[in-house]
Structure formats: C-alpha cells, structure tokens
Amino acid sequence: MAKLRVETTINGEETEFLCSGQDSLLDVLRGPLAMTGTKEGCTTGDCGACSIVLDGRLVPSCLVLAAEAEGRVVETIEGVADGQKLTAVQQQFLEHGALQCGICTPGFIIAAEKLLEKNPDPTEEEARYYLAGNLCRCTGYDKIIRAVLDAAAVRREERA
C-alpha cells in the first residue's frame, strides 16, 4: 500500500514524513524522524513516557496516529529548551536530582510544562494528580514533585 505523506509542524519546524495508515505518531517520531527523546514504555497509554503536545494538548503519542498530525502542531521534548537555555522545569529536575535512570524524564518534563502553563501555582496534590499518568519506577516521585513545585515558583518569579 502506498505510504501517506503528512505535512506537520514539529517544534516550530515545518516537517513532512511518510507513514502507513496505522503507524503511531510515536513510531514516526522515533523512527523516520529520529527524534528519540520521546520514549516508548508501553504503547497503550499507561506510562506517559511518550507524552507530547498536539495542538496545545498533552497527549500520549502512542495513541495518536501519525496521519492525524497532518496540519497540526506537535511539540516534543527536543523543543522544550529555549535555544541554549533550559526551562525552569528542566533546570529544577537537574537541581533536585529528580531523575535516576531518566527514561521517564522527557515525558515528565513535557507534562510538567503543560501543568505549569495551565496552573502556575499548583498544590502538591494537584501536581501529583496531574502527573499521575507519568510512571516513574526509580524515584518514588518525591524529587520530581519537589522539582515541579520549585519550577512553578521560579516561573512565577520570572513572570512577576
């Protein structure tokens, strides 16, 4: 079967790729586009490692078909940092040691950025529930939550 040609915008760049009708957006990001920062942990929407932002919404890229990206706007971990400058979330993850193995980290950062965009001053409980779809098996979440809450404070200061 002929491949589909899809034009989309990824991290601000107009991008085109070929895919089959059943390829997920995750498959295409990690395969043909070689953007392996988005991780695959389950392919069933249960782990959050493949989180991306699609037209402004946080979604699991394993549950998005690649062909759906036509004309849409995709944001991935590779586009989070502002040029050479890390975001407050990225920086706080480093400061807090909020990662051990690091496989869940891109998904957490994408989700945490979206959380802070929607809720600049989340409580611990709000952060925990918002991020409940991002599994981490190494950290027990303590340092991750602290990093997110501190990043929120840094962002509020920067915007004050």
Binding site: R30, T36, E78, V80, L86
Partner: peptide, 11 residues
C-alpha cells in the same frame, strides 16, 4: 536526560 538527547536501548 532533560533534553531528550540521552540514548537508551531502543534509541
């Protein structure tokens, strides 16, 4: 690891 550059097994 916070920028997605780190290469794991499947990468």
């Amino acid at each position: 690891k916070v920028t997605g550059r780190a290469r794991f097994g499947a990468d």
